[in-house]
């Protein structure tokens, strides 16, 4: 019961904060709204039985990625930008597209098969780690490191001042 109330409270928070991300005029406001979304999603992961993902979400997203966003917003002094929403003529088109998207993905999700909750679920850190480092994910895991290095090299090369 308490779990249900908590879930809906978090869901409403996440959803309204997501709206704020899109509607905020200043990039900094968007960033803080996004942090709220990330934290409530992390709590929802906890409710869904994955404490490790809940914490990793905070470590990687709220702790690192959003700090990077804040840094860039401060670095470029985005407050000077006037760019708000797009031209008015775009709005109906975008909403139409979003509506179609909701319909389509919604159809898939509603039609999706949810297994009844009889099966025991072990979302503990150990179970997670066992699966992550099993043979099935070896290549993905190693590819991740290549991805990270590529991103690092790319970011360094792009951001350094050309001389």
């Amino acid at each position: 019961m308490a779990e249900t109330i908590l879930f809906y409270a978090l869901a409403i928070t996440a959803f309204s904060a997501a709206f704020a991300v899109v509607l905020q005029k200043s990039a900094l406001g968007s960033a803080f709204a996004l942090i709220v979304v990330l934290c409530s999603l992390s709590a929802i992961y906890g409710l869904l039985g994955s404490p490790i993902l809940a914490t990793l979400q905070i470590v990687i997203y709220a702790g690192a990625v959003m700090v990077l966003f804040l840094f860039v917003i401060m670095l470029l002094d985005v407050r000077r930008e006037k760019g708000g929403g797009g031209p008015r003529s775009f709005v109906p088109l975008a909403l139409l597209f979003a509506g179609l998207l909701v319909l389509q993905v919604g159809a898939v999700l509603v039609g999706s098969e949810l297994v009844p909750q009889s099966a025991p679920f072990d979302g503990s850190a150990k179970a997670f780690a066992r699966r992550l480092f099993s043979q099935d994910y070896v290549y993905v895991f190693e590819a991740t490191s290549v991805l990270i290095v590529a991103a690092l090299a790319g970011a360094l090369a792009l951001a350094r001042r050309r001389r």
Partner: peptide, 29 residues
């Protein structure tokens, strides 16, 4: 089911944001 619905809603809001916002940083967010 409601968690899935929330996921769908967040995705749609994000997509609208990508389409409507002009500021690159907001688009990335």
């Amino acid at each position: 089911r409601h968690a899935l619905a929330l996921s769908l809603a967040l995705f749609a809001v994000g997509a609208v944001g990508v389409l409507l916002r002009r500021n690159v940083i907001t688009v990335l967010m």
